[in-house]
């Protein structure tokens, strides 16, 4: 099925939400206070909601399987998410910074999908746009709080940005399937998303008093199925039940 462009595109979209949703779900019950715990769990819930829509559609296109077989029963090289979303919850600054870099990409992505010629993707975009707008507002506010808070929070945020910024380039590195979907009017134009992403991030970096490092982009080929060393552990958890108790209903 990976040769089917639309199917592959759905995996590209869905896997990012799946892995980021997973990272956020690890935090549930361990947040710095109840309010942020609840908010980040909301983000995770929204992302998993999107995953279900993408993968139900993918299973339909494949003509076999379910949202769960798509989510849980692939080998690592068949997951197509970017490296940014695999980055661990090192501290709250990393969580917020990872989220912000993602949200600033995700909102224009959803807006673009709303205009997709594919009706299902357009519907997913319409629902996701509202969620992504809220996520971006939340992470932007926290970027400012941490950047403008104490000396320690500022230092931690800058250090998180130093680590994570290198991974943001991969979001915009167009893969073959993204190019094809863009040309068919189904997928988003990453060039346009990048323009909006730059505007949003520059604005928030300024008000958070942090600056992106000029380190070169991390070599990251998640869209081709090559992942970081974190990915195996993530999948070990996500897939545990389906692998240990195969072919059962839950």
């Amino acid at each position: 099925m990976l040769n089917n462009s639309l199917y592959r595109y759905l995996l590209l979209l869905g896997d990012n939400s799946l892995i980021l949703g997973h990272r956020l779900s690890e935090l549930c019950g361990h947040g710095p206070n109840l309010e942020t715990d609840i908010a980040l769990t909301n983000h995770s819930l929204d992302l998993f909601g999107q995953v279900r829509s993408y993968f139900q559609y993918a299973a339909k296109i494949a003509g076999e399987g379910t949202e769960d077989s798509v989510a849980f029963l692939r080998y690592e090289k068949d997951y197509l998410n970017v490296h940014l979303v695999e980055q661990p919850n090192t501290d709250f600054a990393h969580v917020i910074c990872r989220q912000f870099l993602w949200d600033a990409y995700h909102l224009p992505l959803m807006k673009a999908l709303m205009k997709s010629k594919d009706e299902t993707l357009a519907a997913i975009g319409a629902k996701g746009e509202k969620e992504a707008a809220y996520h971006l507002r939340f992470s932007s506010e926290w970027m400012k709080r941490l950047g403008d808070g104490t000396e320690e929070s500022h230092k931690r945020l800058q250090s998180a940005l130093d680590h994570l910024y290198r991974y943001s380039y991969e979001l915009f590195k167009e893969s073959e399937v993204e190019k094809e979907m863009k040309e068919k009017g189904i997928g988003a134009d990453l060039g346009k998303i990048l323009e909006e992403w730059k505007k949003t991030t520059e604005d928030i970096f300024r008000s958070s008093n942090v600056s992106p490092s000029d380190d070169p982009p991390a070599i990251a080929k998640g869209k081709q199925g090559f992942h970081t060393e974190h990915m195996g552990f993530i999948l070990a958890q996500i897939q545990y039940m389906q692998r240990a108790y195969p072919d059962m209903q839950w």
């Binding site: 769990t41 998993f48 949202e67 996500i238 839950w250």
Partner: peptide, 22 residues
């Protein structure tokens, strides 16, 4: 949560634990 056996169960469990925080 991270090991829930299906997406439906994962979402329901996350929402439940979130309710407890509420």
């Amino acid at each position: 949560i991270t090991r829930a056996p299906s997406l439906r169960r994962k979402v329901a469990l996350l929402a439940k634990v979130q309710d407890e925080a509420g």
